[in-house]
Write a protein that binds this DNA or RNA. Structure first.
Lengths: 222, 222, 222, 222
DNA sequence: GATGAATGAGACTTCATTCAT
DNA sequence: CATGAATGAAGTCTCATTCAT
């Protein structure tokens, strides 16, 4: 009586397909992957994929989530190891920059860009960001207690800022792929340390609304 | 019968189509726009588009270029106005952040992500980045002469870094759309000023290769 | 280990599946049901169905047969009870009309329409019709002996006619679902009684071939 | 300046495709036709069909409407010719029966059955039925004035009934294809004349709800 | 210059059926 | 007996591109 042959086999195959999909995702971009491409990569017949996923969008969603979780998991595990507060930040955030390959970066930007157009992706981005920001927020706060982080900074906002600064590293990898990685890291170290350090210019000068002469109306030809 | 194709009219119509394409680009993403969508938006019959462009990829290329030129043009015109060096940086880079709408950001990330997969887009990104970096490089150098910018910084690398920091602002707009824009700008002001300011922590501590425990192998399930 | 397949259990499960299939048939139509839909409705895994049926068409065939047998069985059991001849007709044929729900009617018309395109369905329809006509024929004949039915009528043709008249009731249910059922029955009663009654207009006027100005060539746009 | 090349050409091609679709409809049934089948029959490439129709369902809808309009148009044109009231009825309704080919009948029953499952088809059926019933209603009323039609009959209900009786002819064509057409017509003539004739048994006997021993619960195996 | 008809490949998805377990 | 994995064809529909007019 072979009842449910294997709920574990199902999950394994599912993961196998997701990994194949992820390879396609790297090659083609989040929204440009095709179901047949995935099936070919996974070595299954067209349509068999629908035993594991309801529709293509479900796969894309999982792919997007997985890309972001990669960052969050790494941060969490780093925090779990424990270190003096500011060191954690510099260590981990610059470590993040170490992964700097164009593909990783492209994956991230695909997801971020997609979040501007698909509510489901947007939700995933928001959730992941909130999770990471919460973790970092605690660290920043501790850093302020220890006197290593400027007490003028709002911890929540600083946490958001730090996450975005890490995206800079990804951006740099795409914009200037030839740059020496070691030196890039040193600069990020400087960016983060000087941003957090007490006594940093507290930016109280610009209260008025800045003239928007740089980025024009979003959707028209410049 | 004038066989000459009136180059002025031709160019005008071409631009009109590109503008329509750009609106589609905002809606759908760089690679997801469809030719029919563009034609509909531009109010021309399908196929007539091929009087102005050889193929869809040409349009995408021009769109990508146009998105990046938007930033470069703005920077150039800002520099042309002339100001004390460091002020220019802070002003303009934070001003760029002011454009912070999700759409503008998504456009940029679409182009950057695409550059990891299409050599033609990559070339465009590199060229534009080089141009902006050149401009900023001169400004940084002048800042160093004036004593406003730390002389330890390599001007070329600092310029690259500054451009990527501006991308942070775009990233922040997508990751945390609810954040107060005024406060975000103040933080960016702080990031840039403290990064450039003389005496910033020079990040000389980490020379060894950082452990890559944050971002795993790019294309495999974490 | 009993290799014998317990014919009772087998038949029971088979019937269970057929009943599930019939529910799907009501929902989707004779040819639009899908095997997976049936399996889901029957609560069995896909493919297990093939232990009971060789292919989908076999199920359809049984479904069609079952729909028609429904009518035949009812007629037979009614006749078995015995009653004055004409009363049987009116009683039973109008009783049939009482079942008048759109679903029942749609099922019947699905089968009839299918019989024009599939020889196997056609055979089923012919057989069932012949069976019912035989039963009714005897009743009509008895009615003629008793003087309740017009002796001008050919009993076999009258029987066929009566069966088709019952289809009218089904048609009415689909064409005019809002009509009061009680009044519809009264009209059917009148149709049948007046058709059978002695002295009815014997329709001897039209011998020539009628001009076909109503229904044009079957498969062309009118 | 070839502006709109031909709005008439478009309509012509559209009709051409609809005719091809109608031929497929005859072959395969209303819901079983496939878009590729239609394209092949119409001699166009797959997908070109979507220049003329938004989706497959639109075609089905037009096909269904066209099948019903065939009957309505014929009735209207017959009425337009004018004749003594009861003659019109007998003439035309029996004439309808003359079209008695299995295919025509199958088409009709496909549409009727579909109307039980698709609201759009149901609407079409209701509209067409209402139109025909209106026309016949006037005729019946005139017949009553002239004394040719029983004044006990409710004209609207009688009209509905007459239309359904015509469906009987279609049903007969499918149930007993071998029957002599001439004799079938004579019987229909009798059915209609005796139904309408004054003095017909007014069926006032059965007021109670009839036992439903003929058609069982609609969706379960009998 | 401009239209819209036309094509054919390929997109996503469903389905009948088979087979190892 | 029963499951669910697997297949491959076919279904509906979209799309980039070409061409006659």
């Amino acid at each position: 009586m072979a009842r449910t042959i294997d709920p574990v086999r199902h999950a394994a195959k599912r993961l196998e397909i997701l990994e194949a999909a992820n390879r396609c995702f790297c090659r083609s971009g989040l929204r440009s992957i095709s179901v047949s491409e995935i099936c070919a990569e996974a070595g299954i017949g067209p349509g068999h994929l629908y035993h594991y996923f309801d529709c293509k969008d479900d796969i894309i969603e999982e792919l997007a989530k997985s890309r972001l979780d990669t960052s969050r998991d790494a941060l969490d595990s780093a925090l779990a190891r424990g270190s003096p507060a500011i060191e954690i930040l510099v260590d981990e955030v610059t470590a993040l920059a170490a992964g700097n390959r164009a593909t990783t970066a492209a994956l991230l930007f695909d997801v971020l860009a997609d979040s501007a157009r698909n509510e489901s992706t947007a939700r995933i981005v928001r959730e992941c960001h909130a999770g990471m920001a919460d973790s970092l927020c605690a660290v920043v706060r501790q850093g302020q207690v220890d006197g290593e982080v400027d007490r003028c900074l709002d911890p929540r906002q600083a946490a958001s800022m730090l996450i975005s600064l890490v995206d800079s590293a990804q951006s740099l990898a795409l914009r200037d792929p030839g740059m020496d990685r070691q030196q890039a890291l040193q600069m990020f170290d400087r960016v983060i340390r000087s941003f957090l350090a007490p006594g940093g210019s507290s930016a109280t000068t610009r209260q008025e609304d800045l003239p928007n002469h740089f980025v024009p109306a979003p959707c028209s030809q410049g």
